[in-house]
């Protein structure tokens, strides 16, 4: 399972993003129980310390909350919090690389826009 991770980001960050993604796409809803550290260790074959680090960050940020002896649960407003945070880093995380690569290849802004339309169209047809 280790191959599920890429090497340009720390694995604990990728672990927290996996859980965040489940909250964003509403696989996990408010007050649902999040996968336990042990489940994540077993499933992804990632060290306990690494998994805990990612999960603890989610607790610190109020995205998950702990119930002693039971487990972790999705906090009220978690989804909104994640979306807001991801929006803030969207430019850094995606647009910067896109613009750089486009410049390298001499792709114009208009072309970029039309590619975006194309991709969106393709994803729509895939859904049906």
């Amino acid at each position: 399972m280790k191959n599920a991770f890429h090497s340009d980001k720390p694995i604990y960050v990728q672990i927290r993003e996996i859980v965040e993604d489940q909250i964003i796409n509403e696989q996990l809803k408010v007050n649902d129980q999040a996968p336990s550290t042990n489940q994540l260790v077993q499933f992804y074959k990632v060290n306990h310390a690494t998994v805990s680090k990612g999960i603890n960050q989610l607790v610190e940020e109020g995205i998950l909350y702990k119930k002693r002896g039971i487990g972790m649960f999705v906090a009220e407003g978690a989804r909104e919090k994640i979306i807001q945070k991801r929006r803030q880093s969207f430019i850094e995380d995606y647009i910067v690389a896109l613009v750089r690569e486009a410049e390298k290849l001499g792709i114009t802004n208009e072309e970029i826009l039309s590619y975006i339309q194309d991709v969106k169209g393709r994803e729509k047809t895939n859904e049906h």
């Binding site: 280790k2 260790v41 990632v46 060290n47 306990h48 310390a49 690494t50």
Partner: peptide, 9 residues
């Protein structure tokens, strides 16, 4: 090591 490293505390 690579196969078992996720087990170690």
């Amino acid at each position: 090591v690579s196969e078992m490293e996720y087990l170690f505390d």
